Lab assay of single mutants.
Amino acid sequence: LYHVLGLDKNATSDDIKKSYRKLALKYHPDKNPDNPEAADKFKEINNAHAILTDATKRNIYD
């Protein structure tokens, strides 16, 4: 999941948040209406963010 956000395992919560915002804006379906690959990437980014920002889920993942 870290690679989805372009981060390593030592990433801080701020790093995760910044990377998520940058990538979410880039791949958001509203910005890429005719690109199904961007929509899939956006879903991956959201999933990675949801797990890595939840301390319990992140510990389980790590």
Rank of each mutant, 00 (worst) to 15 (best):
K41V: 07
I45E: 09
D62I: 01
D34R: 08
I16N: 02
V4A: 13
K17T: 12
S13R: 06
P29Q: 05
S13P: 07
Y2M: 04
A11E: 00
A24P: 04
A11K: 02
L1S: 09
K17P: 00
I51E: 07
L25W: 06
K26E: 14
L5N: 14
K57L: 05
S19H: 06
D34T: 08
I60R: 14
Y2V: 00
D15H: 01
D34K: 13
A50W: 01
P33F: 06
T56R: 08
T12Y: 00
D14S: 08
G6V: 00
K18E: 14
E44D: 10
N10E: 06
S19F: 00
I16S: 04
L7N: 04
A24R: 12
L23T: 02
P29E: 11
Y2K: 01
K41A: 08
D15P: 01
D14L: 08
P29I: 02
A48S: 07
F42E: 09
Y27F: 15
K26R: 09
L25G: 07
K9W: 03
T56K: 11
D14F: 00
I45W: 00
N59R: 11
V4R: 01
D14Q: 05
I45D: 06
E44A: 10
N46M: 11
S19T: 11
D34I: 02
F42S: 08
K17L: 09
T56N: 05
G6K: 01
Y20K: 07
N35S: 12
D62M: 01
N46C: 15
F42P: 05
A39I: 14
T56P: 03
A39P: 07
Y20C: 09
T56H: 08
D30Q: 11
K43M: 15
K43N: 08
K22L: 13
F42Y: 13
D30H: 00
D15K: 10
P29W: 01
P33R: 14
D54G: 07
I60P: 12
I60L: 14
A39F: 02
L1M: 13
L5P: 08
A11W: 00
E44Q: 07
K31V: 10
L23D: 10
H3L: 05
N32R: 04
A39L: 13
D34N: 07
H49M: 13
Y61S: 15
P33D: 10
I60F: 13
A11I: 00
N10I: 01
D54H: 02
I51H: 07
A55S: 10
T56E: 14
Y27H: 15
L25E: 15
A48M: 00
I45C: 04
K41P: 00
T12D: 03
K9P: 08
D62T: 00
E37M: 08
L23I: 01
I45S: 03
E37A: 09
H3S: 14
Y27N: 00
I45G: 08
Y2G: 07
I16H: 01
R58A: 12
E44R: 04
H28F: 02
A39C: 13
A24N: 09
K31N: 04
T12S: 08
Y27C: 08
L25C: 11
N32V: 05
G6N: 14
P33E: 12
D14M: 05
K9M: 04
S13K: 11
A24T: 13
D40E: 10
K17C: 06
T53H: 11
D8S: 05
K18S: 13
D8I: 00
D62W: 02
I60G: 15
K43Y: 15
N59C: 13
A50M: 11
R58F: 02
K9H: 06
F42Q: 08
N47D: 09
I45Y: 05
K31E: 11
D15Y: 00
L52D: 05
D14H: 05
G6S: 02
K43G: 11
D62V: 01
D40A: 14
D54L: 02
D30N: 13
A50Y: 02
A39D: 13
T53D: 11
N46E: 14
N10M: 07
Y2N: 13
A48R: 00
D40T: 14
A55I: 05
K41F: 04
E37C: 09
Y2Q: 06
A38T: 07
H49K: 12
A38D: 10
E44W: 01
A38L: 08
K22Q: 15
A39S: 09
Y61P: 15
N59M: 09
K31C: 01
S19E: 11
L7H: 02
T56S: 10
K26C: 06
D30W: 01
H3C: 10
D62A: 09
L7C: 10
A38N: 07
D15F: 01
L7I: 03
N59H: 11
R58L: 04
L52T: 04
N46D: 02
D34C: 01
V4C: 12
K43H: 15
K22F: 10
K43E: 06
Y61K: 09
T56W: 03
N46R: 13
L25N: 12
K17A: 14
H49L: 07
D40F: 13
A11R: 00
H49Q: 10
N46Q: 12
